[in-house]
Amino acid sequence: MNIIQLNNLVKKYPVGNGEFTALNDINLNFKEGEFTGLVGPSGSGKTTLLNIIGSLDSPSYGSAIVMNKSIAELSHKEAAMLRNQHIGFIFQTYNLLPVYTVFENVEFPLLLQNKNATQRKNAVMEALEWVGLTDKIKSKPSMLSGGECQRVAIARAMVKKPQIVLADEPTANLDSKNSHHILQTMQKLNKELGVTFLFSTHDEKVMQYLNRLISLEDGKVISDTIKNA
């Protein structure tokens, strides 16, 4: 079953008097439980594509259907709801809230869902267990290593048990050992929970974990390779 469908997707941005085409006629489908990477050089449109799938942006033309919802037709509230309920984000620079503890950072998406304290505590502890950080719940991000920060970010993305996780260059700031650790964690979650992971990356280490590799260049798909599991 396709969880994401992109049909003739075009995204243009106004630049000066003209327009810059960030995505040009993208046609892609993603099935539930995929572990897919978007690869390509800077400016190839990877992040723009993730933003559209994540309902942070909308297509100029064509359609993006995520969880059976057309992104272009969503109101601000519906888009926020989609992100809140079904999509998790992981960023290159972790983007943890610096004044809050590990527990509170992971708890935040659940506060937005108005979950009660017990539900929040159980879910947060479960998510931190997935990433192996239950001993750091009271630590602030400044007290953690880069790898630990990214694991907290993964827990934050996973705590609401989303159907889709969008990870924008998640290993770009990590050393080799931490990169592998992070990728193994995400791979485990993908297999155990059936969550669809979609990466943007140009990290060779990431590519070896992916089941599907989509290459973008100048906003176009130039290859779409499915590897055997």
């Binding site: 942070l56 601000h76 926020a80 992100r83 809140n84 999509i87 983007n95 998406p109």
Partner: peptide, 16 residues
Amino acid sequence: YSEYGVRLALGEEKSH
């Protein structure tokens, strides 16, 4: 700004 961006991505509405 970074915090607001993350919160948007986590599904918080602008109005919220």
